[in-house]
Computed example of a mutant assay.
Amino acid sequence: MDKVTVLTSEKGAVLFSKRSCCLCYAVKVLFQELGVTPTVYEIDQDPEGREMEKALMRLGCNAPVPAIFIDGRLIGSMNEVMSLHLSGGLLPLLKPYQTMC
């Protein structure tokens, strides 16, 4: 859990992902369209991936990926991110990390 906490506190927008996950890909595309390049950790490529998955679940993720953190705070998975986006709450959180308007 310490590794997840450290990784999420070091960068503004963080995505824990797996290369084979279509929902992870969808979040990456959404962020790209919003002009944000999150720090992506592909946990299926990390030797500590299993431990990271367990830590994400303990933190409250319904599924280990995608898991989105902004400013060190767990936003959630695809459902939570899309709900936040549709209600207009995601963009203000991501504004400091946008690279384009």
Rank of each mutant, 00 (worst) to 15 (best):
D2W: 03
D2V: 12
K3G: 00
K3F: 03
V4N: 05
V4S: 06
T5F: 10
S9L: 09
A13P: 12
A13E: 03
V14Q: 01
V14F: 03
S17V: 08
K18N: 02
R19Q: 15
C21K: 05
C22M: 08
Y25D: 05
Y25C: 04
K28Y: 01
V29R: 14
L30R: 04
L30K: 05
Q32S: 13
E33A: 11
G35Q: 09
V36H: 09
T37N: 13
T37R: 14
V40Y: 10
Y41W: 02
E42F: 11
I43V: 13
I43T: 04
P47H: 09
E48R: 05
G49E: 06
G49R: 08
E53S: 12
K54E: 14
L56N: 04
M57E: 07
M57N: 02
R58G: 00
R58M: 07
G60R: 08
C61T: 01
V65I: 12
V65Q: 05
A67W: 00
I68C: 09
I68V: 15
I75W: 00
I75L: 08
G76T: 00
G76C: 01
G76R: 00
M78F: 15
V81H: 06
M82G: 04
S83T: 12
H85V: 08
L86E: 13
S87L: 12
S87M: 13
G88S: 07
G89Y: 10
L90N: 07
L93N: 02
L94G: 02
Y97Q: 07
T99K: 15
T99S: 13
T99P: 02
M100D: 10
C101I: 14
